[in-house]
Design a protein around this nucleic acid. Structure first.
Lengths: 189, 189
DNA sequence: GGTGAAAGTCAACACTGTTGACAGCCGGGA
DNA sequence: TCCCGGCTGTCAACAGTGTTGACTTTCACC
């Protein structure tokens, strides 16, 4: 609530709220949910810790409002089915990859919280399963769409979390070819 | 250290250490790393919180000693290559699945800690990549083995974390067929 | 019986997220 | 003009966290 109407007075409140959000996004992405304290966010934003809670309700809600998965993959999921696997991998690896990966890392680490977990599920549904399932031909289109999402989460794991030695040395082209073909097997059914 | 030699005296120390370990394993699997406190573990084991630290060094080390990925997949990775994908999926889904999944969940959530993260990487390397890479034929065997590991981590994510609606209604046979075939594409290259 | 080390206990430290009481500012109504 | 009311921000405090140091107890061995 008290969302729609812009701040009725000076607006300095909205400014510091934005500063807090910016600092939170940066710190959460860099150090994870448990690894960044409300006090650290407040200090980085030049604000009082109590003000952080006052503005966002709780650390958990601040996290949810601040680090959201917002990748748009419509152009991929709407494109031709016969090349969907490779195009999906390429899109994941090249379009704003650092945001995608740090966000994935931060959210996965925070799945202790049921709120974060269900938000993550919803994002996967919305971004991949819902646009994909109705388009797949053959048996079990819904399940196959969900398995595409699973394969994607595996790729994100490999790059964002198991990072160090898992995939680093490969070129994007190799990954697009190999992993893309593997995903394509799910698309083709 | 002080491991090899059995406790030189009464042995009651080893007993309570084991009780602490058992309680920790149960609570970590159920509530995750951040969600279980040292004091809760101590209470469940009927011991003093300070004793938990004294025995294991830190909460982090207790976690590492207690919830280890110990799945043995040699029989799968050593088996015939042409059916490796499906056999891998079946083995993951049917052999002690609750342990596998709760462990995966707990470890992934705890990857804030670099120790846990590198342990997770080491486990994936040891269980899948090292036995698999030398056996793969064709180009980039190492990379393809790593991508198999990525696909596996995606399946674990889907079942262990995104659980609720992602895959639940599917039968093991369907998953073995579909996802197994997708992994097989990586094996075949 | 005395010794020394292990096992266990207790209180405290610095830190966390969160809350309530308080102060300052500033536009709008009298 | 004054005063009111509601944001905006500040401060101290709460309960809970992991961890540490000093302490007592216990018991095999010389």
């Amino acid at each position: 609530m008290t969302e729609a109407a812009a701040s009725p007075r000076s607006g300095s409140g909205a400014l510091t709220k934005e500063a807090i959000g910016t600092a939170a996004r940066r710190l959460f992405a860099r150090q994870g949910y448990a690894g960044t304290s409300v006090r650290a966010i407040a200090a980085a934003a030049g604000a009082d810790p109590a003000l952080v809670i006052r503005h966002f309700g709780s650390k958990e809600r601040l996290f949810l409002e601040t680090v959201a998965i917002e990748g748009r993959f419509d152009h991929v999921t709407n494109g031709p089915l016969e090349s969907l696997g490779p195009r999906l991998v390429e899109s994941l690896l090249t379009e704003a990859p650092e945001i995608t990966f740090s966000t994935w890392r931060a959210m996965l680490r925070a799945t202790d919280s049921d709120l974060v977990r269900s938000r993550l599920i919803a994002a996967m549904e919305e971004m991949f399963i819902e646009p994909l399932a109705p388009r797949l031909q053959g048996p079990d289109p819904e399940l196959r769409a969900r398995l595409v999402a699973a394969a994607i989460s595996g790729l994100l794991d490999a790059v964002a979390i198991l990072t160090d030695r898992l995939i680093v040395e490969a070129s994007v082209a190799q990954l697009v070819d190999l992993y893309g073909r593997s995903i394509q097997a799910l698309v083709d059914g």
